[in-house]
Nucleic acid binder design. Structure first.
Length: 605
DNA sequence: CTAGGGTTAG
């Protein structure tokens, strides 16, 4: 009977079988394979989960297989949380059976761990995992992946280490979860160890594993190592492989290599998808390749890919960054879909860069209408005003923030030092060595002033004293992190810092000088990309802010111009000015977290 | 003689 089931093509056929089982009495058998198959069919094939649950509830003694079928169906449903909530009512009746049953059954337990993890209840997932009597590698995988995908990479990595201690051998899926955690944390050394294990166990025959390795190296700041893996892969490259590598170059600001890879991808007869184009546009954005990016965007339809809201977002960013605000505005207004918050926020960021008050006001109005309550939006607008010294308007915006109870997302950074990850918040004094760290910062502050460094306080929201602004800037988490590494390791190894928000212009300028004075390579990974500082140079591309002629004498107009392999510094009015820390990248903001400016502007009362 | 765990994205 069970073997016939896959041949059933409609719900009514399956119901006929159910009727047969009921009338012959088989339906209430303690173990009835056909019944389990039937449930599975209902949940997976016929998309009628509620009917499956209804049927399941009529079973007096559900077998493990029945539970598995239902739980799997719930995991795959479009609203797993709702389904789970409605199901938990009936689950209570059977809970004692479940307890006895699943504790001894690794499969059912694992499914339950996965279910809890997928609905976002990681505490329950962990509890079920702890209570399981029998576990195998898949049980560990379920929780590791759950942590990794639920933004708990530290827990994922800790569990991964425990896996080996407990004598389980990590397989392809284990390393995928662990690598995902490493890439989120930027834990390079851990990632490297996992990569070694992968090679030893020949897990690199799996494309997905290779892709994850490439992604991890890229997100830990090593595009070159990522490319090495990409190049020497023994298994067949998938579309995701290409996309991941293009994205890796994009993140490192290497637009040319990203475009080159796209060419090669075409030669390898791999058709690009929406992600490929997103990666390419992102690459053009970070490398300042405005025309190239715009051309690519317009060529998408020809490749059979319809631009989605993210592609439009990228193009708005591209145009906005180039100072083509009106064009960016027109793109948003002519989009075939409804523009979302992020699009307007991107444009507002560009307005801030080019100090365009009129457009900033217009865009802010849109954001307010759309119900934005993001701190970054308010801060950006007030920055536009502050740049023009319109303090009354600044006060108005600040008031609006107070009324709406707008909260700042706190910035934090972390570094890996001797295998331990240290986390710092802005103005953090909770680290055991905080006194030494602050003393080091004072030393740095003194030394970089000799190099003509001036704190960039022009972004600061309030009309407060310069010294106060300077202090606010000095305690940014990334500076604390860098100072910490400088006091704890004297070797010349590169310093890797990971930050949750975007790096601010001042930190960028200061870290650049630290790199030069202390002779250390410093790599900062922020919310969106990498910044690599080597002996005071930022490679591979440096952006210059060029002042352009403007029709309105009161409005200054700027343009970003990428320059390759030039000593770091900025041109202003055609003259080299060093080291005025103009943030070379005003990319704002990201999905969940506010960027650059909210991080710069402390003391929002 | 089956079932559970899986990579890229403004």
């Amino acid at each position: 009977m069970a073997s016939l089931l896959p041949k059933y093509t409609s719900l009514s056929h399956a119901k006929q079988l159910q009727a047969h089982l009921i009338t012959t009495g088989q339906f209430q058998f303690r173990i009835c394979p056909s019944r389990s198959k039937l449930l599975e069919l209902y949940t997976l094939s016929f998309d009628s989960l509620s009917f499956a649950i209804h049927t399941f509830c009529q079973i007096l003694t559900p077998s493990t297989n029945d539970w598995n079928a239902i739980l799997r169906g719930l995991i795959g449903s479009p609203a797993p949380t709702d389904a789970f909530l409605c199901f938990s009512e009936s689950i209570q009746l059977h809970s004692h059976i479940v307890r006895k049953g699943f504790l001894a059954d690794a499969l059912l337990g694992t499914t339950l761990v996965d279910l809890y993890a997928k609905v976002g209840d990681l505490d329950s997932a962990e509890r079920v995992f702890d209570e399981m009597v029998k576990r195998d590698i898949a049980s560990w995988n379920a929780l590791i992946s759950g942590f990794a995908q639920g933004s708990k990479p530290t827990e994922a990595l800790a569990l991964f280490k425990r896996t080996e201690i407990m004598g389980f051998k990590p397989n392809e899926i284990t390393v995928l979860g662990a690598l995902s955690a490493c890439s989120q944390l930027g834990a390079f050394k851990e990632g490297e160890k996992i990569h070694a294990h992968i090679r030893e166990e020949r897990l690199d025959m799996n494309v997905q594993v290779c892709n994850a390795v490439i992604d991890t190296y890229a997100k830990c700041g090593f595009a070159d190592k990522a490319y090495l893996v990409f190049e020497s892969m023994s298994c067949k490259k998938s579309l995701v492989t290409w996309n991941t590598m293009i994205m890796a170059f994009a993140m490192h600001g290497d637009g040319c290599k990203a475009l080159e890879l796209f060419e090669q991808m075409g030669q390898a007869e791999v058709d690009p998808d929406a992600v490929s184009f997103l990666a390419l546009l992102c690459a053009c954005n970070h490398a300042g390749l405005v025309e190239e990016g715009y051309r690519l965007f317009n060529s998408m339809e020809k490749s059979g890919v319809t631009p989605n809201v993210k592609h439009y977002g990228s193009v708005v960013d591209l145009l906005g960054r180039a100072g083509r605000l009106q064009e960016a505005y027109d793109v948003i207004n002519s989009m075939p879909m409804v523009p979302d918050l992020v699009l307007w926020q991107t444009l507002l960021g560009a307005c801030r860069t080019y100090a365009n008050v009129e457009m900033a006001e217009l865009v802010s109005q849109k954001l307010v209408e759309m119900g934005s309550n993001s701190d970054g939006d308010f801060v950006l607008l007030s920055n536009v005003y502050a740049a023009q010294k319109r303090w009354a308007d600044v006060g108005r915006v600040r008031n609006a923030m107070k009324i709406r109870d707008v909260k700042k997302v706190p910035g934090f950074s972390y570094v890996e030092e001797k295998g331990v990850i240290h986390k710092f918040c802005n103005g953090d004094k909770s680290h055991e060595s905080w006194r030494e760290i602050y003393a080091k910062l004072d030393e740095i502050r003194f030394r970089i002033k000799e190099y003509g460094y001036l704190a960039e306080t022009s972004f600061v929201l309030h009309d407060i004293g310069e010294e106060e602004k300077e202090n606010a800037l000095y305690h940014h988490s990334e500076k604390l992190a860098v100072a910490f590494v400088l006091i704890s390791s004297s070797t010349g190894t590169p310093i890797h810092v990971i930050k949750n928000l975007r790096i601010c212009g001042d930190c960028h300028a200061m870290i650049k000088l630290i790199s030069k004075i202390y002779g250390r390579e410093i790599i900062v990974r922020d919310r969106l990309r990498f910044h690599r500082f080597k002996q005071g140079y930022r490679s591979p591309e440096i952006f210059f802010l060029i002042k352009e002629k403007s029709a309105d004498p009161f409005v200054e107009s700027f343009r970003w111009k990428p320059q390759k392999n030039v000593a770091n510094g900025y041109f202003f009015n055609g003259q080299a000015v060093n080291p005025i820390p103009v943030p070379f990248e005003i990319r704002y903001p990201d999905k969940q977290l506010p960027a650059l400016l909210s991080d710069t502007n402390l003391n929002i009362i």
